[in-house]
């Protein structure tokens, strides 16, 4: 139909004016309430009795600048730990998920192990795993097992996060429509071909946002290996703090961690929005 001869009716103009007015109103309210809440927070915090002391010991520019180089060199260790852990977590998580969703009777013991494993490591606090692995394994005094804090810390992260990631991937596998599996089998594809070419690609697409969310969480938790004595960013900040009795270096480390995770967080958000839009438009995934 031609749009050229169309003249908006007065009714439409009236509706649009009302809509514009409503949106102006809600913007004003949002601004006012943000300002009011902000003002209250600032007043309460700055008015507190210990405010000056807290500002000096947590937000000191001097100590921030002073500790920055050593914290930054510590973060290099975190980065390597993150990347190596992410790599293995994705592989083990996938294998565990496949084991838990397999139907073959031959794999029953594997399935049992995978279920047991995810139950244990999802429930066990990461700190406890770190202590058990980091201090328990060297305690066994087996010569060929590495006993460096970094290695054992990374192993602990992998152990714990593989369980989380396995559950996410398993949820994705189970969310694929059973009719897809049936259609693949009807074409003569074997069980494993169906899994590899039909189910997994769809499952992984479905769970990419929660998967990335777990990886963000893993990046942040890489700082926990400091409890084993590895000189990462947190540990480096701790050493600085021990010398000056000022906590600012911890905040410096925190700021760097946030800066490191933000790209992945934003990417996750972007991907989620994109998928939501696609799903709304065409009922796809």
């Amino acid at each position: 139909m031609s749009q050229q001869s169309y003249q908006p009716s007065p009714l439409r103009k009236q509706r649009e004016a009302a809509r514009r007015q409503a949106s102006r109103r809600s913007t004003t309210i949002a601004l006012l309430s943000t300002f009011a809440v902000g003002a209250v927070v600032v007043l309460v915090v700055t008015g507190a009795k210990g405010f000056d002391l807290v500002r000096q010991s947590f937000f000191s520019w001097h100590y921030a600048v002073h500790s920055f180089p050593s914290v930054l060199s510590g973060i290099w260790l975190n980065l390597r730990v993150m990347l190596i852990a992410e790599f293995f977590v994705l592989i083990f998580g996938l294998l565990l998920a496949l084991a838990r969703t397999s139907k073959s009777p031959v794999l029953y013991p594997v399935r049992l192990f995978a279920t047991f494993y995810t139950d244990i490591f999802r429930g066990l606090p990461l700190l406890l795993v770190l202590l058990l692995v980091g201090f328990g394994i060297p305690g066994l005094q087996i010569s060929w097992i590495p006993n460096s804090a970094v290695t054992l810390g990374t192993v602990s992260l992998i152990l714990t996060y593989s369980a989380y990631v396995a559950e996410v991937i398993r949820a994705g596998i189970e969310a694929v429509n059973p009719a897809q599996r049936m259609a693949a089998r009807a074409l003569g594809l074997s069980q494993s071909q169906t899994q590899r070419h039909v189910v997994l690609p769809q499952a992984l697409r479905k769970v990419t946002p929660p998967l990335l969310n777990d990886l963000v969480s893993l990046q942040k938790d890489s700082g926990l290996i400091s409890v084993l004595g590895a000189i990462d960013a947190i540990r480096a900040a701790g050493i600085e703090t021990a010398q000056s009795f000022n906590f600012t270096p911890y905040l410096v480390a925190g700021a760097i961690f946030v800066a490191l995770t933000i790209p992945l967080t934003r990417f996750t958000d972007w991907l989620t929005r994109k998928q939501d839009r696609a799903r709304q438009q065409q009922g796809r995934w």
Partner: peptide, 17 residues
């Protein structure tokens, strides 16, 4: 056996990816 029989379903079941 299935590879020598063609099957088509009500819901198409094409692979969306």
């Amino acid at each position: 056996v299935r590879s020598s029989i063609g099957s088509v379903f009500q819901a198409f079941n094409l692979f969306p990816h």
